[in-house]
Computed example of a mutant assay.
Amino acid sequence: MMTNLFSVFDPLSSIMQLPLNWMSTFIGLLFMPALYWVIPSRWAIVWYKVLNALHSEFKTLLGSSLAGGTIIFITLFSLIVFNNSLGLLPYIFTSTSHMVMTLSLSMPLWIAFMIYGWFNYTQHMFAHLIPQGTPGLLMPFMVVIETISNVIRPGTLAVRLAANMIAGHLLLTLLGNTGPSLSMTLVSLLIFSQILLLTLETAVAMIQSYVFAVLSTLYASEIN
């Protein structure tokens, strides 16, 4: 019996204390061997084109000094989009709908950016705390505001991804649970609405992966 609406997202399945639901994070690795065939498939060609487009965009955002770092953000995008998309399939646990997963992705990146920036570009990092043209009286307040906005960045990244994923899944679950009590006409409308919502969730899964990777790239580009 479901005692809590959010209990549908609880990782309860386990064997010998091993939480099997979290293993869904690595299901995307099953797609990797298909990329190494001598004659690539159509799916592999499309994926190569997507990665090349992301590489060009991230390289432009990062600049010449961090151009080699695009592999980090492309890998991050691939991991999130695989988890988001596979989580839409039945009986596959969506790990990116949990703050534990999303914070584990955003926090280490943000900490690494901060350590690298403050040790190598200290003056530049201090300059970021005070926007150009700020009056002298407002400088202490601007330092506090900019510091707070910088500190909450990993949290906003994590909450944005988790909230968008869990909201759509909750709506699909709520609508699906009303099916047994409806008439055939309303069930037909329900199925149609579920298909539309599933299409929307597929788009959200891809868009949120892109947004997470792009924002991480922008945060990295500010340190140099």
Rank of each mutant, 00 (worst) to 15 (best):
M1E: 08
T3N: 14
L5Y: 11
F6T: 14
S7Y: 09
D10A: 15
S14N: 13
Q17I: 09
L20M: 15
N21F: 04
S24D: 10
T25L: 11
I27D: 04
G28L: 02
G28F: 09
L35A: 05
W37V: 00
P40H: 06
S41G: 11
R42H: 05
W43E: 03
W43A: 11
A44N: 01
A44W: 07
I45K: 15
V46E: 09
V46I: 10
W47N: 04
W47C: 05
W47S: 08
V50H: 08
L51K: 12
A53F: 01
A53T: 07
L54V: 01
L54E: 08
H55S: 14
S56H: 09
S56P: 03
E57Q: 13
K59C: 12
T60N: 13
L62N: 10
S64E: 14
S64C: 01
A67T: 05
T70G: 04
I72C: 03
F73I: 02
I74F: 03
S78F: 10
F82R: 01
N83L: 07
S85V: 13
S85G: 04
L86C: 00
Y91G: 04
I92N: 10
F93K: 02
T94I: 06
S97T: 05
S97H: 06
T102P: 09
T102E: 08
L105C: 02
P108T: 10
W110M: 14
W110K: 11
I111T: 13
I111Y: 05
A112P: 07
A112Q: 08
F113H: 03
M114D: 05
Y116G: 07
F119Y: 07
Y121A: 06
T122H: 08
M125A: 00
M125W: 00
A127Y: 05
L129W: 00
I130E: 01
P131F: 05
Q132E: 15
Q132R: 13
Q132Y: 12
T134W: 08
L137M: 12
L138K: 01
L138H: 10
M139R: 15
F141T: 10
F141C: 08
F141A: 14
M142E: 11
M142C: 01
V144K: 00
E146G: 04
I148F: 07
I152V: 15
R153Y: 01
G155P: 07
T156E: 09
A158G: 12
R160L: 12
L161I: 07
A162Q: 15
A162V: 09
M165K: 06
I166F: 08
A167I: 06
G168C: 01
L170T: 13
L172W: 04
G176I: 06
T178H: 02
G179W: 07
P180I: 03
S181E: 06
L182F: 02
S183N: 10
T185C: 03
T185A: 04
L186V: 03
L189N: 02
L190G: 07
I191C: 05
I191A: 11
I195R: 07
L197M: 13
L198P: 00
L200I: 14
E201M: 15
A203T: 12
V204D: 08
A205V: 06
M206L: 15
M206P: 06
M206I: 14
S209P: 05
Y210D: 00
V211A: 08
Y219T: 02
N224E: 13
